[in-house]
Simulated assay, not measured.
Amino acid sequence: MENVKALRAQQTPEEQRLWQLLRARRFYGYKFRRQVPIGAYIVDFACYEARLIVELDGGQHAERAEYDLSRTAFLQAKGWRVIRFWNNDFRAFEEGVLMVILEHLRAGGDKAGSA
């Protein structure tokens, strides 16, 4: 739990921005949680009803590709779908990233979603 608190306090500006858009059912009524422990991992954002995890990755993930692959395989084995975006892509294409998230939510969740 200490790790979760530290990660919440040290969010990147991109994570902070995405959280402002996703929190409190602001995003088409879907409920997201942030810095969620799943097994031994802590994921950036999770929507339980759609079983969707959204990860925002900074440059350090380029050097951890193998770790991220095994982490994603574990999460998928637990029934989660994982989508990843680079921080710089979110910064440059925020609306496009949000539309991809919405497509994944609608494909996997029970909600029809409403604008």
Rank of each mutant, 00 (worst) to 15 (best):
E2I: 03
N3K: 05
A6Y: 03
A6R: 00
L7D: 00
L7K: 08
R8D: 06
Q11G: 06
T12H: 05
P13Y: 03
P13R: 05
P13W: 11
E14Y: 06
Q16V: 08
R17P: 07
R17E: 15
R17N: 14
W19F: 07
W19V: 11
W19S: 09
Q20D: 15
Q20Y: 12
L22H: 05
R23V: 11
R23D: 04
R23F: 05
A24Y: 14
F27R: 05
K31N: 10
F32L: 05
Q35L: 00
Q35S: 01
Q35K: 06
A40F: 01
Y41L: 10
I42R: 04
V43F: 06
E49F: 04
A50V: 02
A50T: 01
R51C: 05
I53V: 07
V54A: 08
D57H: 13
D57V: 04
G58P: 11
G58K: 10
G58Y: 05
H61I: 01
H61Y: 12
A62V: 14
E63R: 09
D68E: 04
F74R: 05
F74W: 10
L75V: 04
L75T: 02
A77W: 01
K78I: 03
K78Q: 08
G79K: 04
G79C: 00
V82C: 02
N87P: 09
N88T: 14
N88E: 13
D89V: 12
R91L: 12
E94H: 04
E95T: 15
V97I: 09
L98P: 12
E103Q: 14
L105P: 02
R106Q: 13
G113Y: 13
